[in-house]
Amino acid sequence: MSLFSGTISTLESAMNYSSMKQKVISQNIANVDTPNYKAKDVSFRSSLQMAVNAQFEGRRTDSRHFNFQGYAGSGAPVKIRNAAYNHNGNGVDLDKEMADLATNQIYYNALTERINGKFNTIQTVIKGGK
């Protein structure tokens, strides 16, 4: 039986995703004037699938069964958006990037509040409710 039932590791994975998204958004903003730079984005669906696959282990009882292997990579998949918003071939929409930055910040703050709540609960249990 797991002590934390996977909640803390799930929150950790979500924070890793948010951190990767922050880095990608920062790179896009930093390259807003770079000619022919194509904006990048982090795919949540792919990140979620990697996290789910990494948590499950399968046992093959027949050679025809699929082999369940966890993902060994450390980073989230990054896809390139092929739209050009500027005359120099740059694909960064600064307004969209700033909106994504604000959304990601709110998401990250909510995750930190939730993980702090989990740790406070554990601390309360260890202290015996005092």
Rank of each mutant, 00 (worst) to 15 (best):
L48P: 00
K40I: 07
S63R: 10
D62L: 07
N67F: 08
A72C: 00
Y37W: 08
D62N: 15
R59N: 09
R64K: 13
H65S: 13
H65P: 00
V42R: 06
A76R: 02
G58Y: 03
F68R: 10
A39F: 06
F44K: 01
R81T: 11
H65F: 10
A83W: 08
V78G: 00
V78L: 01
Q69V: 14
F56S: 09
V42S: 07
A51E: 10
A76V: 05
E57G: 11
Q49C: 04
A51Y: 03
D41R: 15
F56H: 12
A51L: 00
F56I: 15
A83D: 14
G70L: 01
A72T: 10
Q55S: 14
D41C: 06
Y37R: 08
K79C: 01
I80Y: 05
F68Q: 10
R64E: 11
A39S: 15
S74R: 08
T61C: 01
N82K: 15
R64D: 09
M50Q: 13
S46N: 13
I80R: 09
Y71V: 05
I80L: 05
M50G: 04
G70W: 01
F68I: 14
G75R: 12
A72P: 03
K79N: 05
L48G: 06
R60Y: 01
S74A: 05
D62Q: 13
T61K: 02
G73L: 01
Y71D: 05
S46L: 12
R60E: 07
G75V: 08
Q69A: 11
R45G: 09
S47T: 12
F56N: 08
F68E: 05
K40A: 12
F68P: 07
Q69H: 07
A83H: 12
P77T: 06
G58L: 02
R81W: 06
H65D: 13
G58V: 04
A51R: 02
D41H: 15
